[in-house]
Amino acid sequence: MLKSSVVALGLCAALLATPQSSAAEERSFNGTWSVQLVTESGLCDSRYTVALAITGGDVRVASAGEGGATVSGRIGPDGNVGLTVRHGSTSGAASGRLQANSGSGTWNVSALCSGRWTAQRRSTRVAQAD
């Protein structure tokens, strides 16, 4: 359970970026994204996938079944990604960049694990949380 919670943190973190952005530019990233984390070092599972929803540059977990993690941060108008993810007392961070329908970057959860992430847009519609 700890491993999957830590990986969920890292995965969600994969998507705090430039907070100054225009609503029109942020909308270009709106939708539901499938994000895959690959662990390159540490105690986490080797791969983990989560659905994230982006609305107006704000990011949230798209499914309530993602282990209770919360995501904070934004997608900048140029696609820069910077997020903080919390699950209980554990937190993680991610950075990278989104393009029109894909993205990539790096993530880490304290000293527990780290790796890289990739994202694919699944829909321009935002999924509702369960």
Rank of each mutant, 00 (worst) to 15 (best):
G115E: 03
M1W: 13
C113N: 06
V7A: 15
R116Q: 13
S102M: 02
N101Q: 13
L11T: 15
G68Y: 11
G31R: 08
A93W: 10
A17G: 15
A62H: 06
A14G: 15
A100R: 12
R122H: 02
E26Y: 04
S41Y: 02
R97W: 01
E66N: 14
I54G: 01
S21I: 00
T55Q: 13
R121I: 05
S21Q: 08
K3L: 09
V61P: 12
G105C: 07
S41I: 00
T118G: 05
M1Q: 13
R27V: 01
V109Q: 12
T39H: 06
R27W: 05
G115L: 00
Y48R: 07
G73M: 03
L2R: 13
G67S: 10
V109L: 04
P77M: 02
V85N: 11
G67H: 11
S89W: 06
A23H: 02
G79C: 07
A64M: 03
T39D: 07
N101W: 06
G79I: 03
Y48K: 03
N80E: 13
I54T: 03
A51I: 09
V126T: 14
D58Q: 14
V59T: 14
C113V: 02
G88E: 06
Y48A: 08
S102P: 06
G92T: 04
L11N: 15
G82S: 11
F29M: 04
S46I: 03
V38C: 01
A8H: 07
D130P: 15
A127W: 11
K3A: 12
A13Q: 07
G105T: 08
G105M: 04
L83I: 10
G92Q: 06
G92P: 08
P19T: 06
G92M: 03
S41P: 00
C44A: 14
N30W: 03
D45P: 15
